[in-house]
Amino acid sequence: MTGFRYGPAEFYLVGFEGSVPDRGTFSALRELIDTGIVRLLDFVVIARDTDGEVDIQALDEQIDSGLSDVELIASGLAGEEDILTLAAHVPPGRSAAIAVLELTYARDLAEKLSSSGGEVLRTERIAAPVVNALMDLLEEEEGD
Rank of each mutant, 00 (worst) to 15 (best):
E10Q: 01
P91E: 15
R94Q: 14
I56D: 03
A58R: 11
T2R: 14
P8T: 10
L67A: 06
D34S: 14
L84I: 03
A106F: 10
Y12C: 08
E80L: 08
R94L: 10
G3R: 15
Y105I: 01
L137P: 00
D60Y: 08
R23S: 15
S116H: 08
G36R: 02
V38W: 01
A88Q: 11
S68I: 02
I46V: 15
I46T: 11
K112I: 03
A128T: 13
A47P: 01
R39D: 10
V14L: 02
A9F: 06
E142A: 14
Y12N: 12
S65Y: 04
L121M: 09
Y12G: 03
I33F: 07
E119D: 05
I46H: 04
A9T: 06
S95W: 01
L101S: 02
Q57R: 15
F11L: 10
G3K: 14
E80H: 07
A110W: 00
P129F: 11
V38C: 01
V70E: 06
I37P: 00
R30I: 10
A110M: 07
R125K: 10
D60H: 12
E142V: 04
S116M: 02
R39W: 08
F26L: 06
A97Q: 03
V54H: 06
A9S: 13
G118M: 12
E111I: 04
G18W: 05
L59W: 09
E142I: 08
E139R: 10
L137F: 09
V131Y: 02
E119W: 00
R125L: 11
E61L: 10
A28H: 14
A88V: 02
E141L: 11
